[in-house]
Amino acid sequence: MYLRFHSTSQTRSSGGRRASLGAALFFAALLAGCNHGPGQGGMPAQQPDHFGVVESALTPGVGKSLVSEDPRAAQYYDNADAVTAGKRLFAQYNCNGCHSSGGGGMGPDLMDGGWIYGSRLTQIHQTLVEGRPNGMPAWGGKIPDQELWQLATYVRSLSLPATVAAEADDTPGQTPAVVPRAADEDAGWTPPASTTNDYGTTIEGSAYDGGGTASTPTDHPAKSTGASKSQGPT
């Protein structure tokens, strides 16, 4: 199935607001789980997206990485343009649909420093190219390889302390820090910070007693009558 909108704009049936539909990218046939080959819909043909086997860095007790490095990664370190481009692509390719602004949803949290398939740029790029079993599509050959590297750079930035510290409100990742080369020099595992699967910090519990106060409203469902009395356990 290959869909394309024919009109470039439509008038909204009520209210008259205009919606640009032509801008929508349609490449259904190219994507997750489809059997069609690459190269349709104006997308680039097969990219050189794979650079040999990259081993996992998840080696407990080993300070230095055993990972073979993809030399193409080098140019994306200390590269502000790559992070900025990656941020734009993150929305364009619906990454935010699953990973929200980095906090996750359908897909995993990308800002907690916890990585199943490795945190290094090379490894994140490989995850984007190959996909992962629990729902992450394989994008190799479907997104230009340079864009995959830019995406990987932005994703790598999301959990950097500098990016997290720059968060002004509850929409993270808006001012992503460049990824310093030093960030990937030590591939040893560190506990993820401040998540619900929290190993590093303490979450304060709550003394809330379960509530459950009944009231008999006289007017509006939303209005408290003020007559609520606390119902303790019996």
Partner: peptide
Amino acid sequence: GAVVSGPVDPRDGSAALGMVAAMSDLPKY
């Protein structure tokens, strides 16, 4: 409840389709 059972970060209010903003304290309970 995705903020407890899912791979979701309470620091991102837009996570889980915006639910996390209102439920970020659930992990305390």
